[in-house]
Structures are given as structure tokens and as C-alpha cells.
């Protein structure tokens, strides 16, 4: 089997909720800190194959954005390994990371915040290009920018305008152009459609698919919108409260979801083609992970939970149809009703 493009191995990340400076210990600062931790990512392992679209799905606070930030080096994991083509990239300094910045880029959620309001489109794109092609002269840069803009469906006169002069969809195109400007292999897209209108979502999604075909891109696509996932993904990873609970190829996941959370999630998307489907009701809401859970992170809301779920962390296990599920209930064959 060929080597995956990215391998994320048992990665953990927690955040301090209070990050104030306290007196150093020699001035009588207390050893026990009052700061509590939010455990955003707990022992997550994932692989991204070259050329695929891996969608990470989950609700608010499940750690999917944190995962993207860890991968892009915007935050450092507390534990675990992130590899890019077999090379560790999780502990690099800025200089060492430069090589990988050229290979992986990111598209952000909010097109109104992800472009510097004080820079023209030309300046935004130029900054990226010049950084990675120091030997290019002005003419080459200009040509490349024109080409980039055209490839994301913007006209040449967009160059000298400021981001606020564009609509949300157009800004997301600029964001994509910026990401493409370093000719990356992997694009991490963190909810790139969430802020857009339906008709514009379709435009951006189409553009992303076109680019994937054209350039052979690999996507890590983070979203909460299962309709988009069903359309766009090659493989899907479902996350809940900092853990991956199910990984499967798209067809398998949508045809035969196994983890109770996945099932509930799938049943709650309003669907136009099946109006009679009643959503599965989960009790309660996603809690804030202030303590490292001892059992399954979903056990509090899971209708199938038993004693074992509260005590033992389920691991991802390979199922007969190739999907991986982390659930005791599935392993034991417990089912609904």
C-alpha cells in the first residue's frame, strides 16, 4: 500500500482557558494552577491519501477546526505525531516549515475576515507568490496573478480592488486563489461554505471540484453540512468531542452508518428527498470537554450506552465493510430498540 500523504497519529491538544501571567514560583506563586483545560483533541489518528477528499464532520466544539490548525502548524500538538509524506512536521520551527507551507495551504471559514481589508487583491496574492518564488521578476508575478484570478473565475480588473468590494462568494474565490498561489498539494478547507448563500455555495463547491481535477489536489474538508459531505467527499471522518468516532468511505457511511452518533447526525439533516424521515432525538447537548473523558466521549447522550461505555475508551476498529468505528455498542452488537 502506498504511503498516505498525511498521517496524524495519536494527536492530543488541550487549551488553557485562562492564560494570564502568574507570578513566577519564587515570588510565592502557587504550584497548583486554577486554570482549567479544555481538551479539544484526544488521541486522534487519521490518514489522508493523496488525491482524495477527506471530509471531517462534527458539531461545534468537536475539535475539527483545531485539527486543521494543528495540521497547518498554527498550533502545536501536546502529544502525538503529524507526518507529511513520512516526514514529521509537528515540531518544526518557522524556517523548517517553509518547505511544507508550499505544499499545504488553507481556506478559511469566514471570507469577510480571512482577507486583509487593507490590501488589494493584487497585494494579497503577490505576498504569497513572492514569498515562495523569490527569484521571479515583476512581470512573471503579474502574469501568474492574472492567470490565478482567471482560474478561479475572477476578471483581471479584480486585481486593484479591496476585499470589501467583493461579495462573499467572490472573496472565497480570492481565498482559494491565494491558497493555490503556492501550487500546493493539499488544501485544508475549514468550513469554506458556512458563510455563503446556497446558490453561491454551489459555485464555490464546483470551483473546488474543478481545481481538484485540474491540479490533482488533495482536500481536507472540514464542515458540519452533511449534504455537502455526501456530495463532495471520498472518505468521511465523523468527530465528536475531540475524538474520531467513525471513518468510512462516503458510500458506506451514508448507506450504513454504524456509530450511534453518526446515525443521529444523519437522521437530523433536513432532507428534501425524504420528508417523512423523523430525526433520532439525542438527549442533551455537546458538553464542553473540561475533563479528559474516561469513557466514550459520546456516552452521555448515547441511547445505547452501558457501564462499559462510561469506563473504557473505545478504539477505532475495522468493520467488515471497511469502515472504522470506535464504539463498544457496535463491537458488542447492541443496537437500537
Amino acid at each position: 500500500m502506498s504511503e498516505p500523504l498525511v498521517r496524524i497519529l495519536q494527536v492530543e491538544k488541550s487549551f488553557r482557558t485562562r492564560s494570564e501571567w502568574r507570578w513566577p514560583r519564587m515570588f510565592g506563586g502557587k504550584k497548583t494552577s486554577l486554570a482549567s483545560h479544555v481538551y479539544a483533541i484526544n488521541n486522534v489518528s487519521l490518514e489522508i491519501e493523496r488525491g482524495e477528499t477527506l471530509c471531517v464532520v462534527g458539531e461545534t466544539g468537536c475539535g475539527k477546526s483545531t485539527l486543521a490548525r494543528l495540521l497547518m502548524g498554527l498550533a502545536q500538538p501536546d502529544a502525538g505525531v503529524i507526518e507529511y509524506q513520512g516526514q514529521r512536521i509537528d515540531q518544526l520551527n518557522d524556517k523548517q516549515r517553509m518547505r511544507y507551507r508550499k505544499k499545504m495551504q488553507m481556506v478559511f471559514q469566514n471570507p469577510y475576515a480571512s482577507l486583509n481589508p487593507r490590501m488589494t487583491v493584487y497585494q494579497i496574492l503577490r505576498e504569497a507568490i513572492v514569498l515562495h518564488h523569490r527569484d521571479w521578476d515583476r512581470h512573471q508575478v503579474d502574469l501568474f496573478i492574472a492567470e490565478l484570478l482567471q482560474s478561479v473565475g475572477l476578471s483581471k480588473d479584480a486585481e486593484d480592488r479591496y476585499p470589501h468590494e467583493f461579495s462573499g462568494g467572490q472573496r472565497q474565490r480570492i481565498s482559494l486563489a491565494r491558497a493555490l498561489s503556492v501550487e500546493p498539494e493539499l488544501i485544508v478547507a475549514d468550513e469554506p461554505l458556512a458563510a455563503l448563500d446556497v446558490s453561491v455555495q454551489a459555485q464555490v463547491l464546483n470551483l473546488m471540484m474543478d481545481k481538484q481535477q485540474e491540479l490533482g489536489l488533495t482536500y481536507l474538508f472540514i464542515t458540519h453540512d452533511l449534504a455537502v459531505v455526501e456530495h463532495f467527499a471520498t472518505r468521511v471522518a465523523v468527530m465528536y468531542l475531540g475524538r474520531v468516532c467513525e471513518v468510512a468511505i462516503r458510500e458506506t457511511l451514508f448507506k450504513a452508518p454504524k456509530h450511534p452518533y453518526t446515525q443521529a447526525l444523519l437522521s437530523s439533516i433536513p432532507r428534501l428527498d425524504n420528508l417523512t424521515l423523523e430525526p433520532i432525538h439525542l438527549s442533551g447537548e455537546v458538553p464542553t470537554p473540561l475533563e479528559k473523558p474516561v469513557g466514550c466521549s459520546f456516552c452521555g447522550r448515547c441511547p445505547l450506552a452501558n457501564q462499559r461505555c462510561y469506563e473504557q475508551i473505545p478504539m477505532l476498529e475495522l468493520q467488515a465493510d471497511g469502515s472504522q468505528v470506535a464504539c463498544h455498542a457496535v463491537a458488542e452488537g447492541r443496537s437500537w430498540k
Binding site: 507551507r101 488553507m106 471559514q109 486583509n116 481589508p117
Partner: peptide, 20 residues
């Protein structure tokens, strides 16, 4: 804000991020 993250992801230096 995300545009600062975007600049970091591109590898723009700290000083430039601050000033530019």
C-alpha cells in the same frame, strides 16, 4: 482574525505580519 492565520500559513514572517 483569519487573515492573520492565512498569512502565517503562507509563511509570512512575524515582523511583516505585525507591520504589514
Amino acid at each position: 482574525k483569519e487573515y492573520v492565520d492565512a498569512a502565517r500559513v503562507l509563511g509570512v514572517s512575524k515582523v511583516r505580519i505585525m507591520l504589514r
